[in-house]
Write a protein that binds this DNA or RNA. Structure first.
Length: 588
RNA sequence: GGACCUGUGGUGCAGCCUGGAGUGCACGCCGCCCUGUCAAGGCGGAGGUCGCGGGUUCAAAUCCCGUCAGGUCCGCCA
C-alpha cells in the first residue's frame, strides 16, 4: 500500500504560497528556508518561549518550532515560514516520515481560523459514521479518507491506461436518457420544456454502448456513473461508478481478456503485486460447489453432496432429490439458540428445515436426528465432509437449487471473513442461465438482460425448454462480491425476436420499448460483447474497507439521505409549477 | 415492505439485565503553569432534553408501547 498514492506522475508541488508539502521534508532540505501550508494538527506549548506546531497536509505532518508562544488552535489554516534543520539528538521521531527534521525559527501566518473540530482528525480516533457523514469535509481531511480517494484515483488512472493501451476509445453517453421500463428502477427527471414528459438517469449505459458499436466505434469504454433507485446496502449506493466497455468482432474470451488486463493492472497499482491469471468456473459448478453465483474462494470449505448416501435412507427429513452438507469448523460449540437462528435463516430462504450434527469424539454425532441414522449414514456424514471432533455439519435436503442456495448463504454468513481481509481471490463465473425463473404470467425472466446471446449449444432449447438454456454471460467475482458482469449481445434481429418471444414480449411491445435499438440493428450491427464492473467495490476491497462508502467522497445513508446537505429536500412551488409537477401525500 | 443491532456532555464508551439524586472513565475544549515535546506534562474549570413522545411506578437513562435517526441483512438491485 505504498507504491500507489505517490503518483508516478511528477508534478509541481510548489505554488506561490508554498515551497514544499509537509510530508516531503527530509534531511536533504536542511538549511533551506521554506514555506509550508496546511492545517494545525496539534500544538504543544512549553511556556512562553517554546511551542511546537504539527502542520498537516495530505502528504503528512511536519513539526514546526516556534520560539515563543503562538495563538494557533487545532485546524487553523496557516502558512509557516522557517528554516529546515536536523532535530536535536535524542528527539528524532520514528513515527513520522519527516521525523529526522523540523522547521525552526518559524513565523506563523494564520490564513483561516477554525472552530474546534467535532471529532479528532487522527485515524485512530473512532467516530460514528453518522457524525463523519454530517461533517464529511472534516472526515475527508483524515489520512484514511485521503488514502482511499487517492488510491481510487490511481485505480482509475490504471484502468484508463489499460483500456487506452488495448485500443478502446473513451466516449461519454447521456445522463438524461429515455425511460426503458425494464430492470432496475430508474431515477426520473421532469422536463421543463415538455411538461408531463420525463427523462431518466441511466441505470447503466447499456443501450448507448451497443449503439456505439453499430456506430462503428469498435472499442468503447467509459468510467461511467450509473443511477439505480433501489434500496441501498454496504456495497450498493444510488449512484455508483463502473468501468463500462463494449467491443465489436469479439467473443466472450476476448472481452474477459480485456477486462482481466485492466483489473490486474489496477490491482498491481493498488497493492504492488500483480495477481495471477483469473480462474474460470461455470455457473453450475459455482452453485454446486459454493451455493452462490459469486463464490468467495478465500473460504476453502465447499458444499458436500450426500445425495447418494441418503438415496435409500429411512430418514424422512432427507427424502429429497438432493442432500447437501456444509461443515462449520468448531461449530459444535454453537448454542441451541444460535442453531435455531440458523434454522430460521434457512427457512426464510425457502428450506423446509435445517439439520445439524455436532461432531463429537470418536465420530459420534449430537443431533435430534441422530437416532434415525444407521451406522453407515453416521459415518458417511463425517467422512464425506471430513468433519472432526468439535465441528458442526449442516444439512439441507431439497431440490438442487434450493439445497445449494441455502447452504451457500450459510457458508457466506458463517465462514466468509470481511470482504477486504486476506488475499484477493478473483474468479470468472461463466455460462449463466438465460433465464432465472418465471414471472407471474409464466414468462421466463432474463437473468442478465434481454439482449444477451444464448450459449451456442443451447439455441434449440430457447424454443423447447428455455429455462435450461445457458447464455454467453459472465461475471467477475472478488472475495464473494460481484464486481461486474457482461455478455455477448444478440446482433441478429431474428435471434432477438426468438428471445423476445421466449420472454413473452410481443413484437409491438419490443418495438415500443427498444425500437431505437432494434432499428439500429437493422442497419448493420457488428457482433459485439461487453462488460461493466463496479469501481467502488473494487477499490473498497483494495483499501480493506467493508463498505463502498469508505471510497466515495460524499455517500448517502442506507435510507438514501445525505446527512451533510440534507438531500433529498422539497423544492419551491414555483419550481414545481415550471416543471408541471404536483406533489401528493401518500395515504398511510 | 420485513428482521435484528445501536442512540448517554463536543467525541468514544461504561451505567440499562436486577428502577432509587445524571453517577463514572478516556479523549477533546477553556484557563493557569511549564525551554525539546511529538497521543507532551502538571493544576484547575466548564460542558447533559440519557434521540423524541407516551405509558407503568412513590420514583425511569434503566421496564413497556410508539416514533425518529444511523447501521447490517431479507425482499429489491434486467
Amino acid at each position: 500500500m505504498s507504491t500507489n498514492n505517490e503518483s508516478s506522475v511528477s508534478h509541481r508541488t510548489a505554488t506561490s504560497m508554498r515551497d514544499l508539502l509537509c510530508g516531503e521534508l527530509r534531511s536533504e532540505h536542511i538549511g533551506q528556508v521554506v514555506r509550508v501550508c496546511g492545517w494545525v494538527a496539534r500544538r504543544r506549548e512549553h511556556g512562553e518561549h517554546l511551542a511546537f506546531v504539527d502542520l498537516r497536509d495530505h502528504t503528512g505532518i511536519i513539526q514546526c518550532v516556534v520560539d515563543g508562544s503562538t495563538d494557533v488552535r487545532s485546524e487553523y489554516v496557516v502558512q509557516i515560514t522557517g528554516t529546515v534543520r536536523p532535530r536535536p539528538e535524542g528527539t528524532l521521531n520514528d513515527a513520522l516520515d519527516t521525523g529526522e527534521v523540523e522547521i525552526g525559527d518559524c513565523r506563523v501566518e494564520i490564513l483561516s481560523v477554525a472552530e474546534p473540530p467535532p471529532f479528532g482528525l487522527e485515524d485512530r480516533s473512532e467516530v460514528d459514521e453518522q457524525i463523519r457523514l454530517r461533517y464529511r469535509y472534516l472526515d475527508l481531511r483524515r489520512p484514511r479518507m485521503q488514502r482511499n480517494l487517492r488510491l481510487r484515483a490511481a485505480v482509475n488512472r490504471a484502468l484508463r491506461s489499460a483500456m487506452d493501451r488495448q485500443g478502446f476509445v473513451e466516449v461519454e453517453t447521456p445522463i438524461l436518457w429515455a425511460p426503458t421500463p425494464e430492470g432496475a428502477r430508474e431515477f426520473t427527471v421532469p422536463s421543463r420544456l415538455h411538461n408531463g414528459s420525463f427523462y431518466v438517469l441511466p441505470q447503466s449505459p447499456q443501450l448507448a454502448k451497443q449503439l456505439l458499436m453499430v456506430g462503428g466505434i469498435d472499442r468503447y469504454y467509459q468510467i461511467a456513473r450509473c443511477m439505480r433507485d433501489e434500496d441501498l446496502r454496504a456495497d450498493r449506493q444510488f449512484e455508483f461508478t463502473q468501468l463500462d466497455l463494449e467491443a465489436s468482432f469479439v467473443t466472450q474470451e476476448d472481452v474477459m481478456a480485456f477486462v482481466s488486463e485492466a483489473v490486474l493492472d489496477a490491482a498491481e497499482v493498488a497493492t504492488g503485486v500483480r495477481p495471477g491469471a483469473i480462474p474460470q468456473i461455470t455457473w453450475h459448478e459455482a452453485m454446486d460447489r459454493f451455493g452462490v453465483d459469486k463464490p468467495d474462494l478465500r473460504v476453502e470449505i465447499e458444499l458436500t453432496d450426500l445425495s447418494a448416501l441418503f438415496a435409500e435412507s429411512e430418514v424422512r427429513a432427507f427424502a429429497a432429490p438432493v442432500v447437501k452438507a456444509l461443515k462449520i469448523p468448531a461449530g459444535a460449540a454453537f448454542t441451541r439458540s444460535k442453531l435455531d437462528a440458523l434454522t430460521d435463516t434457512a427457512k426464510a430462504l425457502g428450506a423446509k428445515g435445517l439439520a445439524w450434527f455436532r461432531v463429537q469424539d470418536a465420530g459420534k454425532l449430537d443431533s435430534p436426528l441422530d437416532r434415525f441414522l444407521n451406522e453407515q449414514e453416521r459415518e458417511g456424514i463425517v467422512t464425506a465432509t471430513k468433519a472432526e471432533s468439535g465441528d458442526l455439519v449442516l444439512v439441507v435436503a431439497d431440490e438442487w437449487r434450493l439445497s445449494v442456495e441455502v447452504l451457500g448463504a450459510l457458508r457466506a454468513q458463517l465462514l466468509s471473513p470481511p470482504v477486504g481481509e486476506g488475499e484477493a481471490r478473483y474468479v470468472w463465473v461463466m455460462d449463466f442461465p438465460m433465464f432465472d425463473g418465471v414471472d407471474g404470467a409464466g414468462n421466463p425472466i432474463s437473468a442478465h438482460h434481454p439482449f444477451t446471446m444464448p450459449h451456442p449449444e443451447d439455441f434449440e432449447l430457447l424454443k423447447t425448454d428455455p429455462l435450461k438454456a445457458r447464455s454467453q454471460a459472465y461475471d467477475l467475482v472478488l472475495n464473494g462480491w460481484e464486481l461486474g458482469s457482461g455478455s455477448v449481445r444478440i446482433h441478429r434481429p431474428d435471434l432477438q425476436s426468438e428471445v423476445f418471444s421466449a420472454l413473452g414480449i410481443s413484437e409491438e411491445e419490443a418495438e415500443k420499448r427498444f425500437g431505437f435499438l432494434l432499428g439500429a440493428f437493422r442497419h448493420g450491427a457488428p457482433p459485439h460483447a461487453g462488460f461493466a464492473f463496479g469501481i467502488d467495490r473494487l477499490v473498497a476491497i483494495f483499501t480493506g474497507a467493508d463498505t463502498i462508502r469508505e471510497v466515495i467522497a460524499f455517500p448517502k445513508t442506507q435510507s438514501g439521505t445525505d446527512l451533510m446537505t440534507q438531500a433529498p429536500s422539497t423544492i419551491s412551488n414555483s419550481a414545481l409549477l415550471e416543471l408541471g409537477i404536483r406533489t401528493i401525500t401518500k395515504e398511510s
